[in-house]
Design a protein around this nucleic acid. Structure first.
Lengths: 131, 131
DNA sequence: ATGCGCCTTCGAGTGCGCTCGAAGTCAAGC
DNA sequence: GCTTGACTTCGAGCGCACTCGAAGGCGCAT
């Protein structure tokens, strides 16, 4: 079915770090901590070889993390995905709960930001006047 | 000049906690850590008495904190305010830098959220189909 | 063959922001 | 007068998410 998906690239940990914006330390830490779907492949030397799927999944992790999902919950999600088919409803539930929290927090931050911008406005006006 | 600004309320630490949404522990911690403009007044018993100004300032702190400003930087800001007139430009600079960071991060989170919502869309569609 | 650099594991350390507990004081109510 | 409960200080402890360092292995270039 696949036509010409040539590049069967696999990346060293340094390259994977480069590709994902994480450090090599963090990549190993995530793996240890069960955030990856399974242990990363190894070269004959024992060095890690990251597949494109690995990198894609790690990008998903960083999306979840940088929207504030705790490591523990990312691991739960990884556990569900790893378990395979049949728990899509649970995964959905987890993601939706997260989405709602993020939306909530986003709007709170926006509100606080407005108050701060108001304060900035006051300073700008008074600084102007003084000049 | 003032007409009838009656309520010269001062709050106990428990009331201040209630009013600000912080815990009494956190209120003491902020004071210890130099985040307040000056030491809170005391009743003859030695108990803290929070003025309306105190509460207002603490609310400002929570706005800064919940938009992600580190404690250390809140303290810098408090130091400037405490120093009194003449450093408005510095305060402004600090707030503007913070605002820009918050805006930046807000948009990044929004982007990540979209990607997550896309994923949710996929799950919803497949769950539907399976039903 | 000898360095060099990138990799490995393991466990300990760091920074942040609280959070808690112990031990004591004070004022009011029974 | 004694209990109760809210307060005080102080320092230690915790949870999170990394972050780092030591000690060693593999393979390639000179």
């Amino acid at each position: 079915m696949s036509v010409a998906e040539s590049t069967d690239v696999s990346l060293s940990i340094a390259e994977a770090a480069e590709a994902t914006g994480l450090t090599t330390h963090t990549l190993r830490y995530y793996e240890r901590d069960g955030l990856l779907l399974d242990a990363v492949d190894r070269a004959s030397s024992g060095h890690r070889r990251y597949s494109e799927d690995d990198v894609g999944w790690i990008r998903m992790i960083t999306r979840l993390r940088s929207t504030g999902m705790p490591i523990r919950e990312v691991r739960q999600y990884a556990d569900l995905v790893r378990a395979g088919d049949g728990n899509e409803a649970e995964r959905l539930q987890l993601l939706v709960a997260h989405r709602d929290r993020v939306r909530q927090q986003l709007s709170e931050v926006a509100t606080h930001l407005e108050a701060i911008e108001y304060k900035i406005g006051l300073y700008e006006r008074s600084t102007c006047t003084l000049t």
